[in-house]
Computed example of a mutant assay.
Amino acid sequence: MVHGAHRAQRGTRRAVSVSSLFSPSEGTHSLKAVRQAQAVDTNGAMVGLSPEVMDKLNEIVPETRRSIRLARESENHHHAAVVSASLAALVGATATAAMAGNPSRPSFTASAETTTTSTLRPVSAASRSEDRTPLPQNSDDGTWSLGASNTSLDISAMSKSTAGNPQIASLMDQDYSSLPSGFNPNHATGDAGNNYDFSQCTWWVYVRRHQLGLPAGSQMGNGAQWAASARSMGYWVDRTARHTGDIMVFAPGQDGSNPTCGHVAIIEKVNPDGSVVTSECGVTLQGKTFSRTFTADQVSQHQIIHY
């Protein structure tokens, strides 16, 4: 009987009231006791608790793994919603700025509807509209000027040649289309000072060439030998008078020159008709010079040393 009574007592459900949960004489503060009390008093239904009781229960009841997971998922959903809203606001601001910068551009509205795309067939050629305004044509009837600064240009600094002598560089620019193939403006000059006897024709030619900034050799021989000597050192030699300072070479006895030694003279002026005016010296003149005029035909009979 004792055992039967004991079993009967174990199977009997004892009523527990919610008001006794926080009584110091009986009950416990565990979540299990609370749920048991709610089930007994309401026949399994949840009871509405006052806010004070709910706050107290939330303080003493530990978080479960499920509640932690649900809270984390809720936070992730909230973050995704914030990012989506920010992106939508950014797209809208960009579209507004683009429309403000280009009023003629057609407006558009973002839509969540599905966009249907179509494939365009390529065409073989593009056509021009008949009412299209033709492009303006270039015109070459305008004027152009450097202005006042062109009066101070340094011509020698604009030379196309690579001559080390600025005077030769300037002359080469004028003779650009006539220069011999492979001509080297920096060839040897043979200049070691004026070694010619005073008042000789060779003495005067050396002096006058240096006055004009042009080279002349110191050991080029008698007048008749100058063309061959100059050519051997790389000077440009032909039969055309081109510039002031060119050397006109006379063969022995030519145009009244010495029948043994020949003669040399400086061309001081080239006339439009090809005739030239010379400056010359001789041993009997004591350093004084004289000039003559030679026709273009006469000049062509002489060898001319340029530079």
Rank of each mutant, 00 (worst) to 15 (best):
N195V: 07
R66E: 09
R13K: 13
A157C: 02
E280G: 06
V61W: 05
A85F: 07
F183V: 06
L214G: 03
S19A: 13
S111P: 00
T244A: 12
Y206A: 02
A97T: 15
H29V: 15
H210D: 03
L179M: 08
M99Y: 15
P24A: 08
A296V: 06
P136W: 07
Q174A: 15
A81M: 12
A230Y: 03
G217R: 00
S145P: 01
S118R: 14
S159Y: 04
Q254F: 04
I247Y: 05
K56S: 07
L49K: 04
N58A: 15
S257N: 02
P166E: 00
K288D: 03
E26V: 13
A112E: 06
S145K: 08
Q301W: 08
N194K: 00
A45C: 09
P185S: 00
P51A: 11
A251D: 01
A95Q: 10
D41C: 13
A192M: 07
R13P: 02
L31V: 06
S161R: 01
P215N: 04
N195W: 07
D41F: 11
L146F: 13
D273L: 10
S50A: 07
T96C: 13
V276I: 04
S25Q: 14
V299R: 03
L21E: 00
T96R: 12
Q225M: 10
D55R: 13
S17G: 12
P185Q: 05
T133S: 03
T202N: 03
A37C: 08
N138T: 12
D255F: 14
R105M: 14
R65V: 11
I304Q: 02
R65Y: 05
I305M: 06
Q286G: 06
S74H: 13
T295G: 03
R7T: 11
L120A: 11
Q167N: 09
V249R: 05
E75W: 08
S23A: 11
N138R: 14
T244P: 06
S107P: 09
I267F: 02
V18M: 11
T96N: 12
S107I: 10
K56T: 11
L90K: 08
A39R: 10
Q137K: 11
V40L: 15
K56I: 10
R66L: 12
V299G: 05
D154M: 06
E26K: 09
S291P: 04
